[in-house]
């Protein structure tokens, strides 16, 4: 395996191990953590982060980011509520919401690829704009009377197990994302774009097209998350999922996806997502206030940018020492 990957794998392992430790500690020391109902809450509450983290991982690997995801989810939920109030059938509404997500993603993608604007700036702009449109669409209403079959699916669990119904479709989407990133030419090109965009272009990779696809898929998944959110919590409001982008980005970076692009694995990202989810769940059980939870998420975000960097520097130092002792290596660093 290439060094870049083994180093990332090492960080994946760290996060995976951390997840196991947190789960074990929680099982043994936190009252009410280990029962199936709480675990199903944990997973259900984490699913919105997990769903958006899938395309976000691909986006960050390619060197871009989308901060408008939570607003797109909110807009999708708000439109869903408004159309439901109009009396439209839910079977029509959901595809329309997903289409709306595609449009939101396309707008981001076109602004970034056609106008060459930095995605951080573009999506902070659309973060505000999409949320604003959501409020215009639905005002301060809360729509709650969606069909019970849909509500039950989004909030229910399989029998008495800890697995929510919605976890199964997530697994399918996860499998698709893993294959797309790690086993297809498309995924390979994303790593190349993230690590060296110009070299990727000179190798015939259609950089702009790939990025446009990623932004569009991210919009689609955000809208799907918005629909899931409204059904899961049985409430469509314009401010649904506010601040979710912070959790998604924190989880993805925590999972070892390099903010500068070109490095990371989906396994790490998913471990990061559920580590964050488990911590949030434990904090709720311990009656830690929502505000304090946001502080913890923010600190995790900073640590997760720092962690892999430190880990990589240690790995590089170790590799350097190894290279220096290897008999066939000529010089430890590239020379003139």
């Amino acid at each position: 395996m290439p060094d870049s990957l083994t180093r990332a794998v090492r960080w994946d392992t760290v996060v995976g191990a951390l997840l196991v430790v947190v789960l074990l500690l929680s099982f043994t020391t936190v009252d009410g953590f280990g029962n199936a109902l709480n675990l199903s809450f944990l997973i259900g509450n984490t699913l919105p982060i997990a769903l958006i983290a899938l395309p976000m991982t691909l986006l960050v690997v390619s060197g871009e980011i989308d901060l408008s995801v939570a607003s797109t989810a909110g807009l999708s939920g708000a439109v869903m509520g408004a159309l439901w109030n109009q009396g439209m059938a839910i079977e029509t509404i959901i595809p329309l919401c997903l289409l709306l997500g595609v449009v939101c993603g396309l707008v981001n993608g076109l602004l970034v690829t056609r106008l060459g604007l930095p995605s951080l700036a573009v999506t902070i702009g659309t973060l505000a704009a999409y949320r604003g449109i959501a409020q215009i669409v639905l005002g301060s209403d809360a729509v709650t009377d969606f069909p019970s079959a849909y509500l039950d699916f989004a909030a229910g669990r399989i029998g008495d197990t800890f697995l929510p119904y919605a976890f199964l479709p997530f697994l399918v989407l996860l499998a698709i994302a893993v294959v797309a990133l790690h086993a297809t030419p498309f995924g390979r090109s994303l790593f190349a774009i993230g690590a060296g965009e110009e070299a990727a272009r000179f190798a015939g990779i259609r950089v702009k097209r790939q990025k446009l696809i990623l932004f569009t898929v991210t919009g689609l998944m955000s809208a799907l998350t918005g629909v899931f959110w409204a059904l899961h919590y049985a409430s469509a409001r314009y401010d649904n999922a506010t601040g979710l982008e912070l959790s998604v980005v924190a989880a993805v970076l925590l999972g070892g996806i390099d903010f500068d692009g070109g490095k990371g694995t989906l396994g790490g990202a998913v471990a990061g997502v559920f580590l964050l989810g488990a911590l949030q769940n434990v904090m709720s059980l311990k009656d830690v206030s929502a505000q304090s939870q946001i502080v913890v998420t923010g600190v995790l975000l900073v640590l997760s940018v720092l962690g892999p960097r430190v880990a990589r520097q240690i790995a590089v130092a170790r590799a350097g020492r190894k290279a220096a002792t290897a008999p066939d290596a000529k010089t430890p660093a590239p020379t003139s």
Binding site: S4, P185, A192, G196, F202, A203, I205, G262
Partner: peptide, 29 residues
């Protein structure tokens, strides 16, 4: 350094970049 190679990628994958369309089986690498 900027146009010819992705410096942080392996020799294998740098050479592989021009073969993304050919070293493929059933859509997978």
């Amino acid at each position: 350094r900027a146009q010819g190679l992705v410096m942080d990628m392996s020799i294998e994958r740098n050479i592989g970049l021009t073969g993304l369309g050919t070293t493929v089986k059933a859509g997978l690498m």
